[in-house]
């Protein structure tokens, strides 16, 4: 709720002070530019819902991007076939995280910190750092720059993924078991849920979608490089937490995550259109995103505290009402 209000406030402020903010082309830009981070946030959300975290998605995006580029350019695969292989690799990489987390019961934070270095390292080793891939057919590049039925092409992919994940989280037993695991893994296990399988599914899904984001990013930037996606994991986590998902797991919503993605994307875009602060807008939006994250967390705690206190006062006030009156 607060976030939706914040988003509306952003729109009002930026359309008043930002140059050409409400121009349709600009709104299209905002959508295009936030697709990849939006995708990562969408799959980060179920992971965080289970009380886990995946720091490796940004690195995996880089690895998948160079693999995809190498397959198209050096091996001469068609973009379609290369995309299929890339998605598979993403799934396997996610599966590797899942294996270490569920089979060996290792903490996700540390496992994905390791694969954060490993995936990026592999991307650098494959390209020796220097190789970049930029020879893609135009039909493929359309994915990143064309529009379909008035919306950017990649927006349709995003909507589809968002739809699937929304249904998974809010309308199926998957979502319910993720929440249960987030509340208490032991409890979920005693309740007879296949905890390992459900956890693994969340991480594999994160891997596959990270690969998808890699393909879309490559199509948009028309180039694949080993450092693609650097730092995206932080933005994705920020969007999810901003969107009201508890970092401890157990509660959260997909639509909240979408609002979180939008709030950050609009903030970054809008700030760079206000004449007097254009020069420092990037740093400023970084600072504000950080501050916003803390404010959202603190606000949540404060609201809970206040409502608890109100509840407590009401219960203690009720018996004493007659004497006061």
């Amino acid at each position: 709720m607060i976030l939706a209000a914040f988003l509306v406030a952003e729109f009002i402020l930026f359309s008043a002070t930002g140059r050409n903010f409400l121009q349709p082309d600009n709104l299209t830009n905002i959508v295009r530019h936030s697709t990849e981070i939006g995708l990562l946030a969408l799959v980060m959300m179920p992971v965080i819902l289970t009380g886990g975290i995946d720091l490796s998605v940004g690195s995996l995006l880089g690895l998948c991007a160079v693999l995809f580029g190498k397959m198209v350019q050096d091996a001469g695969l068609s973009p379609g076939a290369a995309a299929a292989v890339t998605l598979l690799v993403g799934g396997i990489a996610g599966g590797f995280n899942a294996l270490l987390i569920t089979r060996l019961r290792l903490p996700p934070l540390i496992v994905t910190l390791g694969t954060f270095s490993l995936f990026r390292g592999l991307a650098e080793a494959i390209t020796k750092g220097t190789a970049t891939y930029s020879k893609f057919p135009d039909s493929f590049l359309a994915l990143g720059s064309a529009t379909f039925l008035g919306l950017p092409t990649q927006a349709w992919v995003f909507v589809a993924v968002a739809g699937v994940i929304w249904i998974l989280v809010h309308r199926t037993t998957f979502g319910r078991s993720w929440r249960a695991i987030g509340f208490s893994p032991e409890g979920a296990r005693y309740a007879g849920l296949p905890v390992e399988r459900r956890l693994a599914f969340a991480y594999v899904m994160a891997g596959v979608v990270a690969a998808l984001a890699a393909i879309i990013l490559t199509a948009r930037v028309t180039q694949a490089r080993a450092d693609a996606g650097t730092g995206y994991e932080l933005l994705a986590i920020t969007a999810v937490v901003l969107g009201g998902t508890s970092i401890f797991g157990g509660t959260g919503s997909v639509h909240g995550t979408l609002l979180g993605v939008a709030a950050i994307a609009v903030l970054t875009n809008g700030l760079s259109r206000i004449p007097s602060i254009m020069g420092v807008s990037r740093e400023l939006s970084g600072v504000l995103t950080g501050a916003l994250l803390i404010a959202a967390l603190a606000g949540g705690v404060l609201m809970k505290f206040l409502s608890e206190r109100r509840a407590r006062r009401q219960t203690s006030a009720t018996p004493s009402t007659p004497s006061n009156a």
Binding site: L100, I110, V111, L113, G114, T115, F116, S117, L118, F119, R120, G121, L122, E124, A125, K128, G129
Partner: peptide
């Protein structure tokens, strides 16, 4: 080129 990959492996 292998540095990061090796460091990641050691942590894992």
């Amino acid at each position: 080129y292998w540095e990061k990959a090796i460091q990641g492996t050691v942590i894992l």
